[in-house]
């Protein structure tokens, strides 16, 4: 009898949680890749933050020093870098909110996959809007190389 019960329990978990019959596999699935993405974007943002506090600190050195260094952010290559940076921030932000929902919302663990797809869709929409606006502003005021 205990054996039967245990068998039934396993069956239910497998069919309910993954229709594809892959059990409760974590590795190589949405849960793992969102975790990898969260780590990589987090480390990248952290190192940018160190640099960003340092460059902003130049306002205490002199206006010329600050303007010269901040001018580097207006170079076309840096404009692409800023789109990459904001892409990392927006993913980390939306996926972070998803993690909070997985932790605190009753249905969070059941819908964590759907929420990852929602994160990716929201990320894409936000990034299209940001990139268009950022590039438009850049080309309007660009004085050439």
């Amino acid at each position: 009898m205990p054996c039967d019960d245990a068998g039934k329990v396993t069956d239910v978990t497998q069919t309910k949680s993954t229709p594809g019959g892959r059990g409760t596999l974590y590795r190589g699935r949405e849960g793992m890749w969102s975790w990898v993405g969260h780590r990589i974007t987090g480390v990248g943002i952290f190192f940018f933050l160190l640099v960003h506090v340092l460059d902003t600190s130049l306002v205490r050195v002199s206006p010329e020093a600050y303007n010269a260094v901040i001018g580097a952010y207006k170079h076309p290559i840096m404009i692409l870098g800023e789109i990459g940076l904001v892409g990392a921030i927006v993913f980390h932000a939306f996926n972070g909110l998803r993690i909070i929902l997985v932790d605190f919302w009753k249905q969070g663990t059941r819908y964590h996959r759907q929420m990852l797809w929602a994160v990716l869709v929201l990320w894409f929409v936000t990034m299209v809007a940001f990139s268009v606006r950022h590039l438009m502003i850049f080309f309007e005021g660009w004085e050439g190389f």
Partner: peptide, 23 residues
């Protein structure tokens, strides 16, 4: 951070407005 990015990059002259006087 979203408000920070909005006020500094998305409104006004965006990236071009950022200099000593802006800060």
């Amino acid at each position: 951070i979203f408000v920070h990015l909005w006020t500094n990059l998305m409104v006004g002259d965006g990236i071009h407005q950022i200099d000593f006087a802006f800060v």
